[in-house]
Design a protein around this nucleic acid. Structure first.
Length: 270
DNA sequence: GCCCAGGTATAAA
DNA sequence: TTTATACATGGG
C-alpha cells in the first residue's frame, strides 16, 4: 500500500480516469471515490483520502508502473496556467476539471481504444473494450489484461463478432497484424518526428487523422498532438483567434481540458 | 422509435 | 481536391 500526493497538487481520479482518455477504469461500488483498473498487465485499486492518494500496490510496482502511468513527473499546475492564459474559455475549461492528467497508456491499447472510438459513444466504447479483454485477454488474478497484438492477429472478423464492434472489427485485426508482424513499431513512434509518426499510424486500416492523433497523444504521450473530434470542432468555433499552433507542446493537455468541458456543457457549444 | 456518437473508406463530383 | 454516403451498434 502506497500513499502518495502529487507534488503539483493536481489529481482527481474521476476527472482523470473518466474523461474520455481511458476506457477501462471502473468506480469501486462500495468504496468512496475509488477506481479499479488494469494497465501493463497490472491491476490497481486507487482511492483518495483528503490530499493523499492510496495506491494498493507495492513500492516497486508504484515506481515502475503507476508513477509513470499517472504522469506524476509532469507539473500540471504550470500546464494549466499556460493553457488558461490563452483564452478566457480555456481558463474556464482548465478550472472546470483541474484534476485532469494525461495518462501514459500502453501504445497498443490506446491505438485499439481509439480505433473503437470512431463514430461511437464513450459508454459503448467501454463495453467493447471490456468484452475485448474478457474474450481475448488473460486473467492476472484480479482482472483481464489487454489482449496482445499476436492474439488479435490470429483472429478473424467472425471471431470478434461477440465484441459487437461492428465495422471496427476488421480495423482491429489489421492493426494487430501490422503491429505483430507488419513492421509497425509503436515504441519507435515515441521519438519519430511527428509528421512521420502520424503517417506511420495511418498505415493501419481504419486509422485516419483523428485516431492517429489520439493514439499518439494517449499511447505515446506526444503532447503536441491535438485530436479534432466532433466536440473539439464545435469548441474551436468558440475560440476565435486561438490557433492550434499556439498550444505548442501543451496541445494535448489543452485539448483534454476543452474536450471534457465541452462534453459536460453541451449547451455552451451550440 | 429516433438521433447520434472522441471517423474513415470509398465513390462520386 | 473537395464533398457525399455507408458503415454496425446501442446509449440516451
Amino acid at each position: 500500500m502506497i500513499l502518495y500526493t502529487p507534488p503539483d497538487g493536481c489529481l482527481s481520479l474521476s476527472e482523470t480516469l473518466d474523461c474520455g482518455q481511458a476506457f477501462r477504469w471502473k468506480p469501486v461500488p462500495d468504496g468512496r471515490a475509488a477506481f479499479c483498473g488494469t494497465a501493463f498487465g497490472h491491476t490497481l485499486t486507487v482511492s483518495q483520502a483528503d490530499n493523499d492518494f492510496c495506491f494498493d500496490c507495492t513500492k516497486t510496482e508504484f515506481e515502475k508502473i503507476w508513477f509513470p502511468y499517472f504522469d506524476f513527473s509532469t507539473d500540471y499546475a504550470r500546464i494549466r496556467e499556460t493553457v488558461a492564459a490563452l483564452h478566457p474559455l480555456l481558463a474556464d475549461a482548465a478550472r472546470f476539471a483541474p484534476g485532469i492528467r494525461i495518462l501514459r497508456q500502453e501504445p497498443w491499447e490506446a491505438l485499439c481504444a481509439f480505433i473503437i472510438s470512431q463514430n461511437n459513444n464513450i459508454a459503448r466504447i467501454k463495453g467493447i473494450m471490456a468484452r475485448l479483454c474478457a474474450l481475448f485477454g488473460t486473467h492476472n488474478g484480479a482482472d483481464f489484461t489487454f489482449p496482445t497484438p499476436a492474439r488479435l492477429a490470429a483472429c478473424t472478423a467472425e471471431d470478434l463478432a461477440p465484441l459487437r464492434a461492428g465495422f471496427r472489427a476488421k480495423y482491429l485485426i489489421d492493426a494487430a497484424k501490422r503491429v505483430d508482424i507488419g513492421g509497425l513499431d509503436l515504441e519507435s513512434l515515441r521519438t519519430l518526428p511527428l509528421p512521420q509518426a502520424r503517417e506511420a499510424m495511418q498505415t493501419v486500416l481504419g486509422v485516419g487523422p483523428k485516431v492517429a492523433e489520439c493514439a499518439l497523444l494517449y499511447g505515446l504521450h506526444r503532447t503536441e498532438c491535438f485530436p479534432l473530434d466532433v466536440w473539439m470542432k464545435r469548441a474551436m468555433t468558440h475560440l476565435p483567434g486561438v490557433k492550434i499552433e499556439d498550444f505548442g507542446e501543451n496541445a494535448g493537455f489543452a485539448q483534454q481540458y476543452i474536450f471534457h468541458y465541452a462534453r459536460m456543457h453541451p449547451a455552451l457549444f451550440r
